[in-house]
Simulated assay, not measured.
Amino acid sequence: MASSDPGCNWDGVFGITNGTAAPDDTAQTNPSHYVYLIGYPILLCCCTMGSLLIVAALLKDSIKTSSTVYLICLAVSDLCVLWSILPDYIVEAQANLGMLNENSSIVHDSIYYKGFGSFWGETATQFSDWTLIIFAVERLVVSLRPLRRRTVPDGFRKAIIVQAVVLFLAILFSLSYLVWYYYYMSVADTCLAPTLPDVLQLCAPALYRWYLLQTDAEMGMWIAKWILLLIFDVSLMAVLWLHWNAMRRHYPGLPVTAAPMTTTTNANATVPRNASIILAGSLTLYTVSQLPLVILTCLKIARRPPYCSYNLTPDAENRATPVVNIISWSNYCMSFFVYCLVSSKFRRQFRSLYRRTSEQASYSASSKRMSAATEIIVLDTTRRDSNERFNRIMSKL
């Protein structure tokens, strides 16, 4: 939209390149869409199975700590992020494969879902990111002040309250998507503008200013969150390294596998160092997977006034976006593998969960076999009794 980028006049920024209209952004003209079409179902399956296993393993713990609350919230929010994309993926996949009819009910329903889907996905994303930040702050405080008295129930209750507040703020921050999209749907026929920003600019200047402010705030917040989590990741790893070096100095012959995984804070509670290791792995995954999206966001900002320092053409943006999105979404489906990689406790829990499920399945199968065998024996016994009664009657005759 030309009016959203006044003053730069980049060639191609407004959908025109060398005087010709930009090509349609489909899988035929943009092969990077195949990365999205193939990669998203794989990420969705991994996220669904991994998140459910994480929640099941955490709920299996007899002692619930604040780390339990944060890890469950992360697993649920990751699940919501990827599932919120599914309706748009179905429409885009059919469009790219040439199977979409513009008058079909799927297209009609997707238009009505767009506002709620954007609201749901943005809420889950903000909730996941800020949960990770709060979890990192708590782990850093615990690592830097290991002798501070705190009880498990107290930390558990505080974590629930904090997460409720974070969820409320995430919902409040994302409400704009509901307002924009449903206003757009109510006036699109009379406003005669092709896109959401054009409708807001022509028919609702106040909402358009809100749209521009929110877009800039989201870009700035995304970069700020990434930098903040990168600092937390480096700080937490440094603290863990210092603790490990101190332990090696006090116990020079202690192997890595024999290192105690908990640090006692009082007589009634233990703070698992395991949670800090899991968090360090999660922060590393986040910073690596979100780096391409941060770079693309910075290039989008550099394209706009007053900077006008980099010409990111629509064609280059369209080619990069599917690949960048898949890399970014991998953050929400790799938690299960990270937990298994860095945490022996999670590996034990997952093995225990698998053994219990296998035992229940085998017991159910053996029970069914025994039930079938019992029915056969009962039928056979009944048949023999009937034959004996019949023979006795016939002998009397």
Results as ranks from 00 to 15, higher is better:
A2P: 12
V55M: 08
A372G: 08
Q28L: 05
E359Q: 13
S186K: 04
D25G: 00
F390D: 10
M247Y: 04
L242R: 10
Y34G: 06
P6K: 05
A136G: 14
I106Q: 12
S371D: 14
I85K: 02
W241E: 14
V141N: 13
P6V: 08
R319F: 08
M237N: 09
P205W: 01
T263R: 09
R384D: 09
L86C: 04
L147I: 02
T287R: 14
R369Q: 13
L212C: 15
I393V: 04
R389H: 07
L212R: 12
A57K: 06
M247T: 06
T131V: 15
W130N: 10
D109I: 09
K300H: 02
W130Q: 11
K396E: 08
L53T: 07
G121N: 05
G12S: 06
I85R: 05
R149S: 09
P87S: 01
S176L: 06
N318R: 11
L207N: 01
I277T: 13
L240T: 00
Y34L: 15
Y181N: 14
R392M: 06
L140S: 14
V378E: 04
L236E: 09
A372M: 11
A238L: 13
L207G: 01
I161D: 04
T195D: 01
D385M: 07
R145T: 05
A188W: 02
I278L: 09
S364C: 05
D78K: 13
A159Q: 03
A280G: 02
L144W: 11
D189V: 01
L59V: 10
L172G: 07
T265K: 03
Y70L: 15
E92I: 03
H243V: 05
I327K: 03
M221R: 12
R369C: 10
V342S: 07
V162I: 10
M185V: 00
F135H: 11
T17N: 11
F173D: 09
Q360D: 13
S105P: 00
A275R: 01
S358R: 15
D385I: 04
A259W: 12
L212W: 09
V76G: 14
T265P: 00
Y70K: 14
G12Y: 03
N331L: 11
I327A: 09
S174H: 08
D88F: 13
F350K: 02
Y181Q: 11
T26H: 00
N391E: 13
I223L: 11
S366A: 11
A267M: 07
E388P: 00
A170R: 04
T284Q: 15
M247S: 05
W210I: 09
T265A: 01
E138R: 15
L213A: 15
E138W: 15
S77M: 15
R249D: 07
S143V: 03
I278F: 00
A269N: 07
T381N: 05
S276M: 12
L100V: 07
C203I: 02
Y34S: 11
R150E: 09
A267S: 10
S362Q: 12
R248G: 04
S4V: 12
I326K: 02
D198L: 10
D216R: 06
Q360N: 14
N30I: 07
L353E: 01
K64F: 15
I377G: 01
P272T: 08
V69H: 08
T382L: 03
V239F: 00
W210T: 08
D216F: 06
N30V: 07
M237Y: 06
H108C: 02
L200T: 14
K345G: 09
R304M: 04
T287I: 15
